[in-house]
Write a protein that binds this DNA or RNA. Structure first.
Lengths: 223, 223
DNA sequence: CGTATAATTGAGATTAGTCAATAACTGTGG
DNA sequence: CCACAGTTATTGACTAATCTCAATTATACG
């Protein structure tokens, strides 16, 4: 089964909870979390919902770097200022934790540093996997991989086989490096193959997960 | 100017040198450094040369994740076993450092942990940038970006404007998500535009770096 | 010097993108 | 509850880019 960017981690291996000044922030759908250029003094741990992390270029093109789900950490990839925008796709809760306080805590508890490094490792692997997907896969394989990965995050299985799809076709396209039309055509193709169905908007019913995986995998079997 | 995967870091911000059991390993061209599936108990800091980090799929397709140059660290993205193969393109020296000993040292010197985290951050950014390049750029833009980044690593400037190109067209193709033919055609195109010339095999002469950058950039201006 | 490998170039096929029209869904107000 | 407007999704026809297959040339190495 193929894993996607920050959809990767099945569960948080570390939590920022013991850190005293961690503040939980509540976001409604479409609320921004950070703006590009903001001072990047905090990391965010997603507790609930889905956060969209993206970059908009001068010509209007947009690249979605990741959809961050509960357990994912946002902000590792930033030094002084955020180089990406983040907003919520649905109602979400994130725990904000200042880097300064995190580093203080790491000095006292070195094992937390190891865990952070492990989390960073997983993000590097995830980002590299995304590169592989973008580099080596056809449009159909990319869409199948995306749906496969969503299905793998079982917290998004509303009920057996039904997967919540809180992002628009434009979001999926900008994540997979395709156009809206190509995403739509390939979803239609998967529907025609009987692999998925669309019971209602915002949801996908996985009819044949083995078939979907074989369409997605194309021999890619990362970790 | 655009940055590429592990070509990213201009200089090592941290060094593993103070760690006692760090061993320097010498590799001739084409010598393997690690095999996929090996126990991933070590990181490698490239001291000299170029290391090719790649993954081969069952159907023979290959994705080069990075060309690691002096100052780059290999092995962050691995947990238990290496998920990629590494070998040397030219004569190279790498410092191998066991993760266990690194973690011991981090416990005594927390600031080293911060530096490692910063290095990991840069790698995440680098991997994400590669995704953007693969996702959003045309073949000509990718080739121009690649040459631009090579030129930016000044340790590879043999003399003014001449850049060593130790990798084959197949390597470049497998890094940029293109075919050998497309890479070759676009190198020819850049030559036709007077932007580069090929004085001898294994080297590129940058004739017009501004022009090369403007062909590469296409509004992407990451950090 | 000859052979094997690497690089270039050409012609045609394939894939995804573009532009355009239509359909479906969302939310608002009557 | 329905009609409307605005957004999102689907579908079609055509275009453009890259890939594939093939031939040729250049380079490296024994």
């Amino acid at each position: 089964m193929l894993h996607f960017a920050s959809l990767e981690s099945p569960a948080p291996v570390w939590t920022l909870s013991p850190i005293e000044d961690a503040a939980v922030k509540t976001l409604r759908a479409h609320d921004p979390l950070t703006f590009e250029g903001d001072k990047a003094d905090r990391l965010f741990e997603v507790l609930e919902g889905v956060i969209r992390v993206y970059k908009v270029f001068q010509d209007g093109r947009r690249q979605i770097m990741s959809f961050a789900f509960p357990g994912d950490i946002i902000g590792f990839a930033h030094e002084d200022t955020y180089s990406f925008d983040c907003d919520a796709l649905v109602f979400s809760r994130v725990r904000a934790i200042s880097k300064a306080s995190l580093l203080r805590t790491v000095r006292e508890r070195p094992e937390l540093g190891e865990k952070m490094l492990a989390a960073a490792s997983r993000q590097i692997t995830a980002a590299q996997n995304l590169s592989i997907v973008l580099c080596r896969k056809s449009a159909l394989e990319r869409v199948a991989s995306f749906l496969c990965t969503l299905a793998g995050r079982h917290q998004f299985l509303a009920c057996s086989g039904t997967v919540s799809l809180p992002m628009t076709r434009a979001d999926i396209a900008d994540y997979l490096g395709l156009t809206i039309e190509t995403v739509s055509r390939n979803i239609t193709k998967l529907r025609g193959l009987g692999v998925i169905s669309l019971p209602k908007t915002g949801y996908v019913q996985i009819e044949n997960i083995q078939r979907l995986q074989s369409l997605a995998d194309c021999e890619v079997d990362l970790h």
